[in-house]
């Protein structure tokens, strides 16, 4: 059982949470301006990183809020979490995984 640190509620069991997948791919502001390849890349392309990645999580059975979580997908170690829009803790920006 993973303990997921909700930035609002503190550490909670994973079963209270929904993982929304990798962060860092904002919806294109004008989808009609994209060709099929660019739209498909946004809709279906995944980094699926083996290593530290930033993810969006939803504390469904708790405060109901979404937040960002950095986790290493090799061993599921949690590296930190922070509210959406806030600056990530030092060292957790990971470039494109930002948020």
């Amino acid at each position: 059982m993973l303990l997921i640190p909700c930035p609002f509620c503190g550490p909670r069991e994973e079963v209270e949470m929904v993982c929304g997948g990798e962060a860092g791919a904002p919806r294109p502001t004008d989808p009609r301006a994209l060709d099929d390849a660019a739209w498909t890349a946004w809709l279906y392309g995944r980094v699926n990183r083996k290593g530290p990645q930033n993810e969006v999580w939803w504390h469904r059975a708790g405060c109901g809020r979404w937040f960002l979580l950095a986790r290493d997908t090799r061993d599921d170690r949690v590296l930190g979490s922070w509210p959406i829009g806030a600056a990530p803790p030092a060292g957790l920006g990971l470039g494109e995984g930002g948020g």
Binding site: M1, E14, K50, E55, T73, R74, D75
Partner: peptide
């Protein structure tokens, strides 16, 4: 319920 490469059991 989350992506992972860790081949671990999940209670």
């Amino acid at each position: 319920r989350y992506p992972s490469y860790g081949q671990k059991g999940s209670p």
